[in-house]
Design a binder for these strands. Structure first.
Length: 574
RNA sequence: GGGGACGUAGUUCAGUUCUGGUUAGAACGCCGGCCUGUCACGCCGGAGGUCGCGAGUUCGAGUCUCGUCGUCCCCGCCA
């Protein structure tokens, strides 16, 4: 039984490629074997659903098809039953012509009929099974937490659900099960996990969906090393079992500060070098006024060296990079092409021979190399060089795409100042514990305090993160006050957590893994939409169901809601 | 919220600028016919178009202008 993938009607002999989820098998209608079914088989078309009876037999000598796993055999049909016919599909399921993504989403069930799409989702299932097996075997208990829960002010925008029973009040769909898993630790569950849906109402990207799946876990009586240890082990087992790939353990670790200095980003792609080097001292001694000015203002001058990059970048290519620098806030991009005769650069006349040699040495630069330099405050310099580093590596094809390169980024800043909101915000979330030795400066220099947090980065993509949590009521209250949340407000929004912290909260910490991103990387697809059975478009709509859609006035009335503004929506697209 | 690319048979695209002009093409798919070893079967014939939508310029718009809708990518945003 299966679907007609293709037919080859030779008149008196008819071949059908029959497809089911496991693959394709050729079946033969031969009037010498059975007349009636052969006659009926003439009308078969692609994607019809059929059942056949017959004998599996070895193909004739020389008629094997090496490109099919079942290419040595065929089914000689003695009975044909047509189970269903089809209209002409909106796109060809056998994949001869690729359809646009919105069409494939609208007819997602046809897309999923394709072997590649099915296999991606089957791999997702296998990865999830592997993770479950690992965690089950290590004493973790899967617990479901509420989807209809309480809106929290920090973090992303919430999806809201109106309450019918309590008119005018709203549930929020969880951005993550964060607080519930902490409560489970306080309850003494010790090791919890959940493969769970999370919801965030923010603008979409190729690697972002409004609802996405996390592997969420939490452990009691642990420090960050134990959480990271479990996670490394879990990833190692999963990559080994699913891909046959051995992750190099232990996964290397970088403190946030060092990652920013060396790679210009908190999710460095460490599959290639080209690290950022500081040449502030040398630049300060040059005659280039712009560099001097930056250094006097407390800024830095940093550079990356592109080995053999001088011929690869034309004036135009460098101008493009310059525009990207401007996009990052940098005032400009200086470059040096190293030739056998010295520097080819607009900086040439501003640097003495000694300084030139010092720069070359510091940057490990030889003739044929290209040096890119940015001068500004530390943040912008790191950010723009970090962007160049990745862009240049892509353009020069320096990234080994076969491997899986993991790195932990630890000890992020606990807090950062939000210019727009004019207050401090938690970098990770407000329940993250500060590094103990930084506690004394929490009040006076809050932005200098490091968090007991850690992100797992794979091939330059953040795939997960977590932290040791605050289990001390006084510190949690202090955190809220530093974040500008008044005690009454904290009580209103997080009262249940503060209350719980009074009743014997053990030290605990955990982590969450972006499961869709992990699966996308492991299956080698470019968008997480490919690894989600029924994903949404970049405007958070579903072409298949036409969600979101309008509802009856009666439904609204029942919820005590009234629409303002744009009320008219068409129910059906053309 | 901002920037960019795209939108033409069922599908994927060409045609669109410089230079608006008779009947808008191709491939795959679809329909009909022929064919006993095909496997992207082959051969012959055929149908299929509101050029996303709306306005404007023009004697004349797929082509130029403005608006609008949709899809994708990026920035902001995503504790």
């Amino acid at each position: 039984m299966g679907w007609v993938n293709s037919r080859r009607d030779l008149g008196s002999l008819i071949f059908i490629d029959l497809r089911d989820r496991e693959g394709i098998t050729q079946i033969v209608f031969d009037p010498q074997i059975e007349k009636v079914s052969h006659e009926h088989a003439h009308i078969l078309r692609n994607e019809w659903v059929v059942a056949v009876k017959g004998t599996v037999s070895r193909r004739l000598e020389g008629q094997e098809n090496a490109s099919l796993p079942t290419g040595d055999i065929e089914v000689k049909v003695t009975e044909l039953k047509i189970l269903n016919r089809t209209e002409t599909p909106p796109f060809q399921v056998d994949g001869a012509v690729d359809a646009s993504e919105s069409l494939r989403l609208k007819y997602r069930y046809l897309e999923l009929r394709r072997p590649e799409a099915f296999n991606t989702l089957r791999n997702r299932h296998l990865i999830a099974s592997c993770i479950r097996k690992y965690l089950n075997g290590n004493g973790f208990i899967e617990v479901e937490t509420p989807f209809l829960t309480k809106s929290t002010p920090e973090g992303a925008r919430d999806y809201l659900v109106p309450s019918r029973v309590s008119k005018g009040l709203f549930y929020a769909l969880p951005q993550s099960p964060q607080l519930f898993k902490q409560l489970l630790m306080i309850a003494g569950f010790d090791r919890y996990y959940q493969i769970v849906r999370c919801f965030r109402d923010e603008d979409l990207r190729a690697d972002r969906q409004p609802e996405f799946t996390q592997v969420d876990l939490e452990m009691a009586f642990v420090d960050e090393d134990q959480v990271m240890g479990i996670f490394e082990d879990m990833m190692s087992v999963t990559f080994s079992e699913i891909l046959g790939y051995q992750i190099a353990l232990p996964i290397k670790r970088l403190e946030y500060r060092e990652a920013m200095d060396r790679f210009g980003t908190d999710r460095p792609d460490t599959r290639f070098g080209m690290e950022l080097k500081d040449i502030t001292d040398i630049a300060a001694g040059s005659d280039f006024r712009m560099f001097k000015g930056v250094v006097e203002d407390g800024g830095v001058v940093k550079a990356i060296t592109i080995k053999g990059g001088a011929p690869a970048f034309s004036r135009k290519g460098l101008d493009e990079l310059g525009e990207m620098a401007a996009g990052c806030g940098a005032k400009g991009l200086a470059w040096i092409k190293l030739t056998d005769n010295g520097w080819q650069s607009s900086l040439n006349k501003f640097f003495g021979d000694g300084d030139k040699a010092a720069v070359n040495e510091k940057l490990d630069a030889e003739p044929g190399d290209l040096i890119l330099i940015v001068a500004h405050n530390r943040k912008i310099v790191n950010e723009s060089l970090g962007v160049f580093r990745v862009e240049v590596a892509k353009r020069m094809d320096l990234i080994n795409t076969d491997g899986y390169d993991f790195v932990w980024i630890t000890r992020f800043p606990l807090l950062e100042y939000n210019e727009e909101a004019k207050r401090l915000e938690a970098v990770h979330h407000p329940f993250t514990a500060p590094v103990e030795e930084d506690l004394p400066i929490l009040e006076d220099y809050p932005e200098k305090v490091r968090a007991r947090s850690y992100d797992l980065v794979l091939n330059g993509a953040e795939i997960g993160g977590g932290s040791v949590r605050i289990h001390d009521l006084a510190i949690q209250q202090k955190m809220f006050s530093i974040l500008g949340i008044l005690p009454e407000e904290a009580q209103l929004k997080f009262g249940f957590l503060l209350e719980a912290l009074k009743y014997g909260a053990p030290p605990h910490g955990g982590m969450a893994l972006g499961f869709d991103r992990l699966v996308a990387i492991m299956t080698g697809v470019s968008s997480i939409r490919e690894v989600i059975a029924f994903p949404k478009t970049t405007s958070a709509t579903c072409p298949l169901t036409n969600a979101p859609s309008s509802v009856d006035n009666a439904q609204l009335k029942e919820l005590g809601l009234q629409l303002v503004g744009r009320e008219q929506h068409t129910l059906f697209d053309k």
